[in-house]
Every structure is written in structure tokens, then in C-alpha cells.
Design a protein around this nucleic acid. Structure first.
Length: 439
RNA sequence: GGGACCUUGGUGUAAUGGCAGCACAGAAGCCUGUGGAGCUUUUAGAGGGGGUUCAACUCCCCUAGGUCCCCCCA
């Protein structure tokens, strides 16, 4: 054998991708428990769609001109020469599944939720990762404005229940095709007058996606936008009515919201209602609004997408949905200093001697079968060490099985805090444990 | 796509162009029948590559990550 050169190749996780270590799992579990419970109450059914989809699904659905598709999509050719993509968002796959499985013929509306990883290739920063988890809820096949409010309420309540208060919904209406084409004409006409003063991006956007100019953060652009026509004034009767009702429902549900006429969102398929949910920090609420505006990160967002289905199918299908950025919500909770409780072992088994060790294996199995979380270190033999371990793991109850006890078919139950010990028959152990753990 | 700062054992950190030190955690022991303490011993480190230099953890360049900002979004 040659002498091995110790050249270590650094193995790191990819940029923007993170391991979720045991200590962080509880943040996720807590979130999962909450959305599962609330979805059940709202009667949303879970759907899981593949992480890998045809790239076309997003190019057509999310929109070829959007940043998500243009710059951020993980897409590649497979060996079979298919053009595929890691899903950057959840709505197109759900719509695809809806059509593929004939959910049109199920009783409408179809209320679905999903949870899982999504991928976008952009520079990582606060609340922004290349792999992130999203919870989303979609209602398909229903045009009633109550649906918009219900989706907002569901997302709002999940985040709220997770422990993040001071939530506020920003909401706007983009209108339908008819009214927003009128608006776009007016907007473009207005913007052209100032096009020399707009930033480079916005000059391009006048042609490619004039809506997005409203969203620009450049101060010069913002000044121009201040006096720009507002979509609200161009809504057709139906859209105006729809929006009004959504807001009324939000009032009834006591969900705090503010109208944001500049909220447009970067996905192509939205129509009528669009919204994002933010957490407002008490402390800098009053301070310089400018900085505040730029710094806030939305925890959730969504809207109505009555026209998305037509992209894939001739069918006409109203729908509305939204998603929560799970990492963003977790980061917020951490920022607030809240830690979900870890579910520690309740019992630790200490054994001394060979015969005891063998009986221990059986006891561990039986105790676990009785749904009691028990830990042991069978690799160690002395009592002191094993007790030390139980102590380090902060396990409140220790079972001690020595040679003496094993021979008599008995076992000691020790309460670590009070240092009280009871000798019980091994046959009665589970009963005794249940008594102790209940109280 | 553009920019700022950062990277020292598992973790948190210190100092220095000249032996990389400390704390915690880990392992072994004092001590195979009762834990939390103490003591002893011990494992383990400069993200990777290149350059300047007698000498680089330190200075320079590249690269990979991290954090953050612009852009955009969850």
C-alpha cells in the first residue's frame, strides 16, 4: 500500500441548503402539528406531489417572464432528455394533479393542502434559502369571495397559533383580465411620460410586466408610482364587488389587514385578490417607515388564480390559494426566543450484571410496547456511570435492575428528584410506571 | 446578476508574521450497588487551493461556504 496522502476534500452542504438537526426538529414538528390540526378543522385534505416536475409546468403556469422561472429554477435535462425542474412553488403541481386525476368530477370545491421542500436558485440571505419548506393551501373550483377570506384566515391562524402575533395581512386586487387590461393601458400611458426617470429595470418592465413597476423599491420610481393610476379605480363591477366582499369577510373574521395598492406579486397567474402576511415588530413600528418597508419579510402570500387552469386546459376553473414560508416562520419564532419543548425520555434503565442485562433487553421492549419512552446504556456496567448518564439526559425516573433484583424477579424504581426508591415485581413494572407517569 | 462582512478542535472563543491557548462538550480513570461535585489523564483544530516570506492561522489572490444588502420572493 502506498502511503495515503491526507488530502481532505471539503464536503459541505450546497449553498442555501441546510441540515435540520435534532434540536431544530421540534420547530418543524410543532408547525406540522398545527397545520394538520387546522387543516382538518377547515376540511382541507393533504396532497403530496412530486418534487421533480416537467419544467414546462412552471414555465407555462408560473410564467416564463417571472424571476422564479427565468432566474431561480433548478432545471435540467434527464438522461431520457426530458426537461425537468425541482419545483419552485406549489400551485402548478396541485393544479396539474387536479386535472390529471379528474378532480373536476369530484364535489366542488376541492380543498387541498401540501407541505414539503421547494427549491429556488438565488442568493441565500435572511429568510431565504435555496431549499425551503412551504405549507400551502388551495381551494379549486369555487369563485365565491368567501374562499379568498377562508384561505387567508387559515394561513393567518396557523401562523398565529404557532406563536407569532402582530400579524397583518396586506391585500390588493389585480382585477380580472378585462379590467386589468384597461388598467395596464392607463398605467403604461402614465409611465411612458416618466420613462426617462425610471430605473433600468422598470423601463424594461413597462413592456414586459408593467404591474411590477408598482412594486419597485427605487426612490425615484416610487415617487412616480405615488401618482400613478391605481388598479382599484379600474376594477370592473364584478371585481370590485368581489374585493369588497373579501374585505367584509375579513372584517367579520377580525383579521387585521391593510390595503396595499402596490402589492402585485411576481407570479403570472394571479387575478383579483392577492395578499401577503407580515409580522409587525412593535419596536420599530413608528421608526423610519422607509427602512421598515424594505426590511420586512413576508411570512406567507397568495391569491386568486382563476386563469391558471386555462393555461393547461380549456376548462374554466376559479381557484384561490396561498403558502407559508416555514423557515421564515420558524426564524421569526426563534427571533422571539420561543423554543418548542423537547419530548425527552421519561425512564432510564440501569442494569448490573449479565443476567440483569439479558432481562433488561426484554424489559426495554415491553416498556416501549406500553408506549413509555425508555432509554438505557447497556454498554456500561457500573451503576454510578449509568446513573450519571440518566442524570445528564435529565430523565426523571430510573429503573435499577441488579443481580439481587434480577434473582428475585424484582426491580427498583427510583425517582431522581426525591431519591425515593420502590422495589416492585418486574411483572408489575408497567402498571407502576403508568401510575407514576400519569401524575 | 451586483455588493459588504465573515470562516481557528464537536461547540464557543483567545493571541501572534516565529511552539495555536482557554472553556464547555466527548472518552478513560480515581469509583462494577446509587447521579448531579471534584481531581487526574486523554481525544480533537486554522474550509480548500495557490502566492509573498527564512518563516503564514496571521499578508495577497482564487475558490467553497456562512451572514447580510440590492434584485426578487415564502
Amino acid at each position: 500500500m502506498e502511503k495515503e496522502e491526507k488530502k481532505t476534500i471539503p464536503i459541505q452542504s450546497l449553498a442555501g441548503m441546510h441540515d435540520i438537526l435534532p434540536e431544530d426538529q421540534f420547530y418543524y414538528r410543532r408547525f406540522e402539528k398545527i397545520f394538520e390540526k387546522l387543516c382538518n378543522l377547515y376540511n382541507f385534505k393533504r396532497i403530496d406531489t412530486p418534487i421533480l416536475e416537467s419544467a414546462d409546468l412552471f414555465i407555462k403556469g408560473t410564467g416564463a417572464a417571472t424571476d422564479i422561472v427565468q432566474k431561480e429554477m433548478y432545471s435540467f435535462r434527464t438522461k431520457g432528455n426530458d426537461w425537468v425542474a425541482l419545483r419552485p412553488e406549489g400551485t402548478p403541481p396541485v393544479v396539474r394533479a387536479y386535472l390529471e386525476h379528474g378532480m373536476v368530477s369530484w364535489p366542488q370545491p376541492i380543498k387541498l393542502f401540501y407541505y414539503g421542500p421547494f427549491f429556488r436558485h438565488e442568493s441565500p440571505q435572511a429568510g431565504r434559502y435555496r431549499e425551503f419548506r412551504q405549507f400551502g393551501a388551495e381551494v379549486l373550483g369555487e369563485s365565491c369571495p368567501s374562499v379568498d377570506s377562508e384561505v387567508i384566515a387559515l394561513l393567518f391562524n396557523i401562523i398565529n397559533k404557532y406563536g407569532i402575533k402582530n400579524l397583518i395581512v396586506e391585500i390588493n386586487s389585480l382585477g380580472c383580465k378585462k379590467c386589468n387590461s384597461k388598467f395596464i393601458t392607463a398605467l403604461v400611458k402614465y409611465l411612458r411620460k416618466f420613462s426617462n426617470n425610471l430605473c433600468q429595470n422598470c423601463k424594461r418592465r413597462i413592456i414586459s410586466n408593467p404591474f411590477r413597476v408598482l412594486d419597485c423599491k427605487e426612490t425615484t420610481c416610487r415617487e412616480i408610482i405615488e401618482n400613478a393610476p391605481q388598479i382599484i379605480d379600474y376594477l370592473c363591477l364584478e371585481c370590485k364587488e368581489h374585493f369588497k366582499e373579501v374585505l367584509e369577510f375579513l372584517d367579520i373574521l377580525e383579521i387585521p389587514y391593510t390595503l396595499n395598492p402596490y402589492l402585485v406579486r411576481g407570479l403570472d397567474y394571479y387575478s383579483k385578490t392577492v395578499f401577503e402576511i407580515f409580522s409587525v415588530d412593535e419596536k420599530n413600528k413608528e421608526e423610519n417607515d422607509e427602512n421598515e418597508q424594505n426590511k420586512k419579510i413576508s411570512l406567507a402570500g397568495g391569491g386568486r388564480f382563476d386563469d391558471l387552469i386555462r393555461v393547461y386546459n380549456k376548462r374554466n376553473l376559479p381557484a384561490c390559494g396561498g403558502g407559508i414560508g416555514v423557515e421564515r416562520v420558524i426564524d421569526k419564532l426563534k427571533e422571539m426566543g420561543i423554543k418548542p419543548e423537547e419530548d425527552e425520555s421519561q425512564v432510564f434503565l440501569v442494569q448490573i450484571g449479565d443476567s440483569a442485562k439479558k432481562i433488561s433487553m426484554k424489559i426495554l421492549q415491553d416498556v416501549r410496547a406500553a408506549n413509555i419512552k425508555i432509554e438505557a446504556s447497556l454498554n456500561k456496567d457500573n451503576l454510578r456511570e449509568q446513573l450519571g448518564r440518566a442524570d445528564k439526559l435529565k430523565i426523571p425516573i430510573v429503573l435499577i435492575l441488579g443481580q439481587k433484583e434480577a434473582a428475585e424477579g424484582k426491580i427498583l424504581i427510583r425517582d431522581m428528584a426525591s431519591e425515593q426508591q420502590d422495589l416492585v415485581r418486574i411483572n408489575d413494572l408497567i402498571q407502576e410506571l403508568k401510575k407514576i407517569i400519569k401524575t
